[in-house]
Nucleic acid binder design. Sequence first.
DNA 1: TCAAACAAACCGACTAGTCGGTCGGATAGT
DNA 2: ACTATCCGACCGACTAGTCGGTTTGTTTGA
Lengths: 203, 203
Amino acid sequence: MTAVQERSKTRRQRLLDAALEVFTSHGYSDAAIDQIARASDTSKGGLYFHFPSKQALFLALLGEASAALLTDVETAMAAETDPLARGDAALREVLHAFGGHRLLARLLLIDAVGAGKEFAVKLDELHAAFAALIARCLDDAVAQGLIPPQDTRLAAQAWYGAVNHVVLRWLMTGEPRRLEDAYPALRRLLLFGVTGASQEKVR
Amino acid sequence: MTAVQERSKTRRQRLLDAALEVFTSHGYSDAAIDQIARASDTSKGGLYFHFPSKQALFLALLGEASAALLTDVETAMAAETDPLARGDAALREVLHAFGGHRLLARLLLIDAVGAGKEFAVKLDELHAAFAALIARCLDDAVAQGLIPPQDTRLAAQAWYGAVNHVVLRWLMTGEPRRLEDAYPALRRLLLFGVTGASQEKVR
DNA sequence: TCAAACAAACCGACTAGTCGGTCGGATAGT
DNA sequence: ACTATCCGACCGACTAGTCGGTTTGTTTGA
């Protein structure tokens, strides 16, 4: 890689880092391009050399963030073979990833939601990817007779939503102090519901 | 009530209706005050007579919407005595209310989230109120020995999140066609988890 | 070896347009 | 006559995106 390309790459990264910072602290609309340029120690012109518009910059940020999260979760899942253990791993990894990257959580769970219709598609992709991951797990579990047949799509949505909201709560109120602490109760709930019957059967 | 007061009241309502329409179709930031004034068949000056700022208008809208939803749910719950039946009623009522008022759902679940830090408090109040309602149910159920002791706060959060996300899905993708159709599967999932054991015990 | 020519990357003042909020005046109810 | 309500032209602040020009790195050819 030539020196030019390398510099360009680090510039791009600097811009993305600054964008993450500014977008998450002000929200998409209230984040000014000038602010991002300043925060990245580059310039507005430089920013517009790398990204054609504010929207494209935000989209790129969303893309990188969600891709990173997804691969993290996928590798964590790949380490397990049992379908339910894979679900466990996914849950643990999500809590761990968000717990360690507050800004990433804010970006994906708060800022991306209210940023406007233009981003709904991208966001939907992320939701769909996650839901598919979970639904896959559940389908496998059903196929192996570990859990009874059911609407796995809806179950996946509900799981996703439950986790989502616990993370959101953590972002907004700071509870629980360490996000990962929610894991055991959340796991139990997702598997057995509030009635909590037959816990021993699967564990 | 004098004629003036009455006119004022209907004006205010017209403004709120228009605000709901415009805010939900463009998002908070991209909704222009002029647009709302036009949509309400009144004027910008008139709007600013009734609401001191854009923020206050949105806040008022949020307040009315969430209050309406809450009382709906509370009355539905009051009709039942058994804690779990109360939870059921709440779930049914929420799905019914959102299912019948798309814009209300959009406002509370999408637009309010990304509108900015200023609204986080109000949104938090709503979350807390709902979570408290559910947690109360669960606590009662625990006290009556219907379900085992557990972290009812977290369970309430997770329930809320799950329902939230199913509604969101409905808003964004249109699935399921009728929101209420999600009720049976959702209920089963919240009570028994994916393992779904011992369904007959409680029902 | 080293200019000179070229291209990619970068800069920031400027443009053009938007939008929340104001204000002086009009109008309707009492 | 007096007040509450309503109107819309206007103001000032702000900002996404542009553009002419500069810097930095690479290639060419003598």
